[in-house]
Each structure stands twice: as C-alpha cells, then as structure tokens.
C-alpha cells in the first residue's frame, strides 16, 4: 500500500476566505434582527445601519417588546381594554418601556446620555399593512416613556 497525500491547501484557502467575509459581515451589523412571525416588513431604498435598542414588533395580531407579548390586537387595532384613559397610551407597553428606561438611566449617567447612541432609541418592526392609526399609539406611548428616536426596520428594495 502506498501513502495517498491529499492536498488540502486549496480547501484551506477557500475556508479562510469564507471565514474572512463572514467575520467582516458580522462586524458590520452591530445588532442581530430576527423578523417575528406575522410581520411583513415594508420595503425602502434606505440603507442606514441598525443600532441596538429595545425591539418592538407589531403585527396584525400582537404587540411584542423584546420577544415578550404585551398586547393582542383585533383586526390590526388595539382593544380598548389595552389602552389607558386617554385612549392613546398602551398600558402594558408603557409599563415595559418605563422599566427599560429606568434600567438605562441607572446605567448611563445624565451627562453621558446625549452621547450614548442607544439612549432613547427604539427599533420598530411593524407589518406593512398596518394603519398609522395603530402605529401612532405605539409612537405616542414610546414618546411618553422617553423614547423619542425611532428606527423603522425596512427590507432593502431590490
């Protein structure tokens, strides 16, 4: 029997190049996004990067914050029982965001908040067919909890 020498140099080259590109693409996207079930993202030509922040997802059936179910929707509308007296604030979302804001404030001193790129930011993944009437309740609640910068997640247009 003779020794069979398999030359794996070419394979090594391919693997290293692949690894290089994958690591590079990982470092470019600062946050990982998984699109929740039932959310069809709108398309846009914009290509701004996504900065990590509290993630809200809004489909025709439910509102979730960081994968935690906060409210069920009926035909793409919030139920009256989920809203506070002003009919503009989503009670469960307000409670969740207030807690998150307190945690963030405890972590970041007051003077450094303006420089922190994640402070007061929200990632919003909403279904493209929802009406602004539904979305504005989320925006209103977020603003009342101190979240005033929104990142609307979109699919890049082909």
């Amino acid at each position: 029997m003779t020794d069979s020498n398999v030359n794996i140099t070419a394979l090594m080259d391919i693997l290293t190049v692949l690894l290089f590109f994958l690591i590079k693409s990982f470092s470019l996207s600062s946050t990982s996004l998984s699109i929740p079930d039932g959310v069809r993202l709108p398309a846009s030509f914009t290509n701004s990067p996504v900065v990590d922040a509290v993630k809200l997802s809004l489909s025709e059936k439910e509102l979730k914050a960081d994968h935690q179910l906060l409210a069920n929707l009926k035909n793409g509308q919030f139920r009256g029982s989920d809203l506070s007296r002003d009919h503009k604030t989503i009670t469960s979302l307000k409670e969740y965001l207030d807690v998150q804001m307190q945690k963030k404030k405890a972590l970041i001193p007051e003077g450094a908040r303006e420089e922190d790129e994640t402070f007061g930011k929200l990632i919003i993944q909403a279904d493209k067919e929802l009406s602004f009437k539904t979305l504005k309740l989320v925006l209103h609640t977020a603003a009342s909890s101190g979240y005033e910068d929104y990142q609307f997640i979109v699919k890049e247009e082909e």
Binding site: L33, I35, L41, S44, T46, N47, S48, P49, V50, V51, I123, L139, A142, A143, Y147, E148, D149, Y150, Q151, F152, I153, V154, K155, E156
Partner: peptide, 11 residues
C-alpha cells in the same frame, strides 16, 4: 443573509 436597514425618525 437578509438585508435589513433602518429608517430613522424622531418623535
């Protein structure tokens, strides 16, 4: 591998 980006706006 899906391409997502953000459209930023403020309150």
């Amino acid at each position: 591998f899906s391409k997502y980006s953000s459209l930023n706006a403020s309150a």
